[in-house]
Amino acid sequence: MPRTRAKDQKAATSTMEMTQALLQANPKVMEAWLDLMNESARFVADRLQKDQETQKALLSCNTPAELMQVQSEFLSNAVSQYTAQTTRVFEKMSEATRVTLTETAKVSSRGYDDVPL
């Protein structure tokens, strides 16, 4: 079922509100999560470029053997790129989570001096 404009606008508003809340909470946290989002966007753009190059190569094939070669190279490269990307995203997500927890602990932790005896 296709999304409606109201749902799309609601999702965009929610994302914008979340982004603003993160930025106000702590710039380090926002920077860590933006780094993750930028990496994901970079990967998608790169994969789209590779897909377009493969499409051109497929259309220029003259024999079934050439077609098999292009498809084989494409699948092999795609699997290795997706595997590498999964590792990068995992590392960036771990770092973003670490930064978030560290920065949140700084804000929410209590000092020993504020506990009445």
Rank of each mutant, 00 (worst) to 15 (best):
T13A: 15
T86R: 14
V70Y: 04
Q85E: 08
Q69K: 15
T15S: 15
Q49E: 10
Q9M: 15
V107F: 07
M18S: 08
T83Q: 13
A12T: 02
T13D: 10
R110H: 14
P116F: 01
E39D: 09
P116A: 04
T19S: 11
L67H: 13
P116C: 00
L23P: 06
D35N: 10
Q20F: 05
T102W: 08
R42N: 11
T104K: 00
A57T: 11
N77L: 09
S60I: 11
L101F: 07
M16Q: 10
W33M: 04
L58E: 01
K28G: 02
A84L: 09
A41P: 00
V107G: 03
V29P: 03
D113F: 11
R3T: 14
L59Q: 15
E91G: 09
K7M: 10
K7G: 01
A41Y: 02
R110E: 13
E66A: 14
D113Q: 10
M68D: 14
R110N: 12
A45Y: 04
Q81C: 10
V115Y: 07
L75W: 12
L75V: 13
L59I: 10
A6K: 07
T19K: 11
E53L: 12
R3V: 15
K10H: 07
K28Q: 03
L34Q: 01
V79M: 12
V29Y: 03
M16K: 11
R47L: 10
V99R: 06
L48D: 09
E17V: 07
F74Q: 13
Y112K: 14
V115F: 09
T54K: 06
A32S: 03
T104R: 02
M18L: 14
A96P: 02
A41K: 08
F74H: 14
F43K: 02
S72V: 05
N38Q: 06
P2F: 02
R47N: 06
A45G: 11
M1G: 05
K56V: 15
W33C: 02
A32G: 01
V44C: 00
K50P: 03
D46G: 06
E103K: 06
S40M: 12
E39A: 11
K50A: 06
A45K: 07
V79E: 08
A105P: 06
C61N: 02
A84M: 07
V29H: 05
Q69R: 14
L48S: 08
A65I: 03
Q85R: 07
T13M: 12
L23Q: 01
T63V: 06
K50L: 03
T83H: 10
